[in-house]
Structure formats: C-alpha cells, structure tokens
Design a binder for these strands. Sequence first.
RNA 1: CCAGAGGGCCGGGCGAUCGCCGCCGCGCGCAAGCGUGGGGGAGGAAAGUCCGGGCUCCACGGAAACCACGGUGCCGGAUAACGUCCGGCGGCCCUCGCAAGGGGGUCAGGGAAAGUGCCACAGAGAGCAGACCGCCCAAGGCCUCGGCCCGGCGAAAGGUGAAAGGGUGCGGUAAGAGCGCACCGCGCGGACGGUAACGGACGCGGCAUGGCAAACCCCACCGGGAGCAAGGUUGAAUAGGGACGGCAGGGGAGCAAUCCCAGGACUGGUUCCGGUCCCGCCGUCCGGGUUGACUGCUUGAGCGUUCGGGCAACCGCACGCCUAGAGGAAUGAUCGCCCAUCCUCCGCAAGGAGGUGGACAGAACCCGGCUUACAGGCCCUCUGGCAUU
RNA 2: UGCCCCGUCGUCUAAUGGUAAGACUACGGAUUCUGAUUCCGUCUAUCGAGGUUCGAAUCCUCGCGGGGCAU
Length: 92
Amino acid sequence: MPGFVLLVRPRGDGDDTPGVGFTVSKKVGNAVARNRMKRRLRALARAAIPDRGIGGADHVLIGRPGGNDIVFAELAEQLDSALARAAKKVAR
RNA sequence: CCAGAGGGCCGGGCGAUCGCCGCCGCGCGCAAGCGUGGGGGAGGAAAGUCCGGGCUCCACGGAAACCACGGUGCCGGAUAACGUCCGGCGGCCCUCGCAAGGGGGUCAGGGAAAGUGCCACAGAGAGCAGACCGCCCAAGGCCUCGGCCCGGCGAAAGGUGAAAGGGUGCGGUAAGAGCGCACCGCGCGGACGGUAACGGACGCGGCAUGGCAAACCCCACCGGGAGCAAGGUUGAAUAGGGACGGCAGGGGAGCAAUCCCAGGACUGGUUCCGGUCCCGCCGUCCGGGUUGACUGCUUGAGCGUUCGGGCAACCGCACGCCUAGAGGAAUGAUCGCCCAUCCUCCGCAAGGAGGUGGACAGAACCCGGCUUACAGGCCCUCUGGCAUU
RNA sequence: UGCCCCGUCGUCUAAUGGUAAGACUACGGAUUCUGAUUCCGUCUAUCGAGGUUCGAAUCCUCGCGGGGCAU
C-alpha cells in the first residue's frame, strides 16, 4: 500500500517548469499528523521532481492513511516508480 | 545476582546540509516585497476537561446572611485555592516474629438511641423478633417398666440465610438460659497524656443499640453567573439610521384639470373606512455596526544554585537567568558518530563484526492538581530466593 | 472553546437494587410438488475498569465511543 497517490496533468501553456501541490485529508489524522505528512511529501518532491518530474506539468501528491508509518526511502522508491509510469502515459 | 511490591527521576546526545514559523538589524524599493546577517522555536503528559485559582465582563450591593441547587466530609498542617499534597489517628488486609511488637498496603473514614424507607429467594421468625412443626424434659396421669398422654417453665441443638438480639470454658439445672463466675468483646463514666482526631490506668453495667446514608435525609463547611470566541481600541466597500442645508415632489394614463395604483408617519372612531403630511437627488456632520486590523499575549503563585527553618508537604533570604507566542496555527527531512533495543555470525568466556532502528503524543490566555496513554533507562525502600564471607 | 445528552442480542425497544423480556432478523425443523405465508424450536447482549452493597444493567468514580447545542 503506497503512502500517497500521484496525479500528473500537463498544463500545455509553454512553460517548462514543473508544478507541485499537496492534498492531505482528515482521514489521515489530526492537524499534526496531516502537517507532518505534508512536510514529508514536500521533502520527497524537492528531491525527485527537479530531476525526474515531468516538465510543464502539475504534480499533485495526495496523502493516504498510514503514510507516516512508511520509511522515507520506500516512499522515495514509490515516487520514482509512480513518476516513471506517469511519464510513459504522458508520452503516449 | 535473580524475582516481586511500592515510590521518585529522565523521556535519546553531538555535529553537518537543505527547509518551515515568528522576532531584531542592514541594503534596495513609493509600496507590496526581495536579498542578506543574527537570535529564538512543544510536553511530561501540551491530551481528557474531572476539580481549583488568576484575569476580564455582567448582575447584586452598607457588610453579609437565608432559601433552592450542587459539591466536600476522621484530626492537624501546607497552599492563592482545591475533591490536591504532607504528617498523624482509627478500621481492614498482607507479612515477619513463640510473644511483646515491627514492616508494608489500603480506606468517599461525619451522623443509623431525629425521622422516613429498603433488606429479594430461602426460612418458624428480617425489625414491637421469633406464629407453626419438630426438639429437650420435671411435676401429674396410664402402663405390658419400655414407652405413651397431658402440659408448655425454657430456648440449648438441628435447619434457612449476607445477616437470627454477644463468644469460649466452667459451674448450675429435670433439661436449659448471663442464671452465676473467669477471660475476651461491648456499653457508660473516667484520673491522666495529646493542639486535635484519639489513646487510656481504674471503676460500674449482665448486654441494651442488626445492616444500608455511593436510599431520602440530618449536621458542619464551600460555591453569584459567564468565559480570552472574556474584554478593549479602531473601523473599508456596500446597504441602512439621525440632524441641517439646497434643488425637487412616488408610478401609470392624459395637452391639462383630473383619475387610477401603492407605501410610510400622525390622527378620528368598533374588524373597515376617512383626514393631513411625506416619499426623490446632492452636500456637510453625527451615531450604530459587519469582513478585517491592533490589543489582551506572555515576567510568571516563573526557572536554577547556595544558605536557613520544618519529620514532611512547603516556606524564607541572597545571587543568577529570560525560556514559542502566529492565521486552523510553524519546530521537519536526510546523513555521520555515539547511547539504548532486537536479530545473525565468530568465540568456552570477556568481547568482536554486520544489520535493524527510537514509546505515547503536538502549545492556541496563563497557572496548581487529578486522571488517562507511554518504547526504554536510572535511582531509592521493603519482602523472598540462591551463592559467598 | 464551552455546555448538554446517550451507550442493553445483528436491528428496534423493555426491565421497583433481586432469574436480563419482547418484536424483527439469522439458523434448524414442520406444512407445500417448489417458493411465499403460517407454526415450532435454537443462537445471540448490559461500552470498559474499579468501588458501594449480601446482591449492580440500575448507585458512585474514572476512562472509551457516539450524538446534539451556543458562539
């Protein structure tokens, strides 16, 4: 069970820089748990998106319950594989 | 050394990089802001909201008291206060000891001879105690000499129950019974000790007063209400209110007089009808008030150290320190070393190597408690076991 | 932030401090050629932990969960 869901949508406005957004609902926990998840997701995105993100597209990371129990390296792998699959779909 | 019980303390440390939220400088900029430097940034429970306060507003008022409602409940002390804490007393339980006595735990621990109420089932009887059956047995009667009948002083034994109106032993008696005696328990008085709760030498009394007040209640004491979303200052756009001044006098039809349709204020009389006046725009001023901004907002029953007082809770003197104050609201991520945890391998062992990986939880005006959650570690006291001296 | 209320079978409701009751559901059986209906039977619960009491679903305390109200 991955710790998040990744949505990717090309903007198509000619700008090549990627955009990133985060969504963590109340299902995840109280405000502290939600903020912690947002901070961890932000750290993930900062490491991966500039290299492996899709240029000119908006990325939305949706936090899921239990995501705070997954170690950071595993989340990073999940983000890499999700980005790779998204890149294939965008290319088609 | 191991195990158990009780209590107290800590709640990973150091460094690096990249980030987040306030604050203070400097530079640029009209400003928004941008760049740069410095410094600060969660807890023992920040939680539950179960109690107690500070603070603020409201209400009442000479000060308070009474009623209702709610709470507290051995005594003394601590404290701003408490349902909290400390010390003592008493009851109960556990344990050591032959005993005297010691140690530990625990208690919502005022009043049941002020009144009311309840005590299911079982049982003869459950509150004015013991109807009835059965039991024990003297006198009297019958008689086959073993029993039967009559009678009921008496309440031991059996049986029921959570509880049956003192217990054990001896005497006594026909059999019994505090009927008498000894010890224990209980009640009353009480020298004396203690601030008090209470303890209690000694004396008197044959025993009276079952339990439940976390049932109503009685007694004593405490509590006015609401809460920082309290409260205060300021106050945009739009709409609306009041005063003054100026221009004008609702809408429709009609050239017009006039007619029709409305609304508001005042006013006359019975639900209805009538009378008078007004309705718009502009300007100036005043007041209310929403989104918002600022404040309250962190120096406080604060923290640390030394000394002193006290058995202790705690208190006092001196010195030092400043330690988040933001809007639904920031304190994170990664890496290295160390400290604990667990796993595997090597080794008789001490130890070594590799890997793993850190509980419960997250400030929202602030304090004092209680309760609940919690990986792991440290310390103290008591008890038991094993080993050694 | 503050205040109030409620937790009983799978569901909806009962129960003066004294054996936890009923309806629906589920399951099994009977009736029927089969199914429905009907009849009979069975299973299943006091939110948790302490305390008061001889005895607690009921009384008290703490905790857990749910709902509502004010602003």
